[in-house]
Every structure is written in structure tokens, then in C-alpha cells.
Design a protein around this nucleic acid. Structure first.
Length: 302
DNA sequence: TTCCAGGGGTAGA
DNA sequence: TCTACCCATGGA
């Protein structure tokens, strides 16, 4: 059974940029066909039904941006299921994100010409907040290839079965909450992150921790950050990453990689630049510091 | 073999 | 708040 969902997006929008703005499209259960500009993944709906989604969308040149989801399911989707999927897709590609205020700040700076021309500025998000929280924990103190391996192992070991044999959904909180810590360490390749993921899964599965509360747009970034830091396994770097995914760009994530890029360009000849100095450097971009850092064309001569 | 990766928790000051 | 120390894994 196939269903097609059409969504509109706020211009300027470019589907390829919305998907590839950061590395998430390389993590399971996503797969991305760059030639066809098609993002695919299996997903379990709250009703328990499984679907396979193939997502495509318009380029920056189209004045009325759109996103199209080709959804495969065993039974016809009812109105609630279609709405749930449409909401999830809009969230994932940031269809409603208004980047114009950021572009207005960046206008005239050649280092952002490419970002503006290509409609960069969106960070792909996973279908659920739980999935994004786990993935962010999987990026701490490790290499990208190992992060991909951890996510792959979690899906292979605890992912939800679907009617399509080869397609497993990302594990639910309940599935990971039922896992043992040693198994998550070894089979899940999480290492010392295992207790953090286990505790997160258990708290979410039991209802003690409501991740949906983090989605409310009106929350001040500082309060959100304090709440994130109270979750075990989430420190300054992970909190900043999650703030970005949650659409709060007014807290700069200063990590080892930031320093590698920012110091040679803006603080040449210095080796001892504090986080506070780097944050102060970006203060003029408020509330878009993280976009200004991330979508700057570091290869430009600007 | 050693180092370290876009860190985080904990103890102790 | 700041610092030392430990934490697993795997690629260079």
C-alpha cells in the first residue's frame, strides 16, 4: 500500500541542503541517495504500524518549496497516521524554519554567500527526540566512523522489526531499557556510554523523563541547557548539539573542532583562546551564533 | 606501542 | 567554578 504526502516548506528551502546540513543523514536508519536526492528510512508509528518512507523535495530555485513523502505500509494509513507522519517529516527537515533573519545578518559577508545562495541553515533531525538524544551521546569522545558503528549496532541489536526483512527501525526507549548494560557495552559498541544510554532509555520508557517537553519552542535556551545537563551522559558539548537540533542557535558549541577552525582564522598566532573569547566573538550573531559558525564557508578566502 | 577522537562523571579544592 | 583522573573502543 502506497501513500503520498505533500508538504510545503518555508522559502528559501533546498531539500538536499536540508538533509545534508550535518552528518545525521549518514546514520542509520537513514539512507540517502545523493544522486536521486532521496532520503529513506523505516519508521514505527505510535499506533504500532510500520512504514517505509522515501523523501524528496524541491531545490532552492523553486519559489514555492515542497517536500514529498512516498510512504509504503501494509495497510492504508488513516488520517491520524498521515498527520503523525506529516508532522514528523516537517520536523525532521525543518520545513517551517525561517532562515531569513539569519541571512539578513550574514548579507554582505562573502563567507556566507554560498550558504545564502544554496539555502543552507537546516539540521536534519531524527523521527523522534529519543533517537536524537541517543545519537548525540554516541558522538561524544569518539570518531565519526565509530559513531556510525554504534548506531548501526544499536539498530541491529535492538531495532524494531518491520514487515520488510532488511529494514529495522531505530530502537524504542522500551527496547533499550530492557537491554543489559554489558550487552550495550559490547554488542552495542557503546563502551562507557552504555550506562548513560541505558539510564536515558529507562527514564523515558518509564515516563519519568518527558523528552517532548524539550520541543516547546518558547523555552529560554539557558533553562533548556540546564535541563539537558541534568541528564547523565550529556555535558556541555552534547547539550550544545541538542540545543542546535532543538532549534536554539544562540548557544555556541565550542569544542575541539571549533577551536581548530576558529582560532587560525580569527585569532591568528594565538594558541590560548578561551571558550568565553570565542563565544564573545560570535555575540553579534545572536540569536544565530551556531548557524554563523556552522554554515560559514571555511574554505572561502573571505 | 602509543595516542587520541568535534567528552562526561566524579571527587576534591 | 576549576582541575585531575578515569572511562571503552578502534583507527592511525
Amino acid at each position: 500500500m502506497n501513500t503520498t504526502l505533500y508538504l510545503t516548506a518555508l522559502p528559501p528551502f533546498d531539500f538536499h541542503q536540508a538533509v545534508t546540513g550535518h552528518g545525521w543523514y549518514q546514520l542509520g536508519p537513514f539512507s540517502y541517495d545523493a544522486d536521486a536526492a532521496e532520503l529513506a528510512w523505516p519508521q514505527r508509528l505510535s499506533s504500532g504500524a510500520s512504514v517505509r518512507v522515501r523523501l524528496s523535495g524541491s531545490t532552492v530555485y523553486e519559489p514555492e518549496p515542497w517536500v514529498q513523502a512516498e510512504v509504503e505500509s501494509m495497510h492504508a494509513l488513516d488520517a491520524d497516521q498521515r498527520r503523525e507522519l506529516a508532522d514528523a517529516v516537517a520536523w525532521m527537515v525543518n520545513a517551517e524554519r525561517d532562515l531569513r533573519p539569519f541571512y539578513a545578518l550574514a548579507a554582505g559577508d562573502p563567507g556566507y554567500a554560498k550558504a545564502i545562495a544554496q539555502a543552507q541553515g537546516r539540521f536534519l533531525r531524527s523521527a523522534t527526540l529519543f533517537e536524537d538524544f541517543v545519537k548525540v551521546i554516541c558522538t561524544t569522545n569518539t570518531t565519526w566512523s565509530q559513531t556510525k558503528g554504534m548506531v548501526r549496532a544499536l539498530i541491529a541489536g535492538w531495532g524494531e522489526q518491520t514487515p520488510w526483512e532488511e529494514a529495522l527501525c531505530f530502537p524504542t526507549p522500551a527496547a533499550l531499557a530492557a537491554a543489559s548494560e554489558p550487552e550495550l557495552r559490547t554488542r552495542g559498541r557503546l563502551g562507557y556510554r552504555a550506562p548513560y544510554v541505558l539510564e536515558l532509555a529507562q527514564r523515558v520508557a518509564s515516563g519519568e523523563l518527558d523528552l517532548e517537553a524539550f520541543r516547546q519552542p518558547g523555552l529560554p535556551t539557558s533553562e533548556l541547557r540546564q535541563r539537558l545537563l541534568r541528564i547523565k551522559g550529556i555535558g556541555p558539548y552534547a547539550a550544545a548539539s541538542l540545543l542546535t537540533l532543538l532549534g536554539h542557535f544562540d548557544h555556541l558549541a565550542v569544542d575541539s573542532w571549533t577551536r581548530k577552525l576558529v582560532i587560525p582564522r580569527y585569532f591568528p598566532g594565538r594558541s590560548d583562546v578561551s571558550d568565553a573569547e570565542i563565544a564573545a566573538f560570535y555575540a553579534g550573531w545572536r540569536p544565530y551564533q551556531q548557524l554563523a559558525y556552522w554554515f560559514y564557508d571555511w574554505n572561502s578566502d573571505a
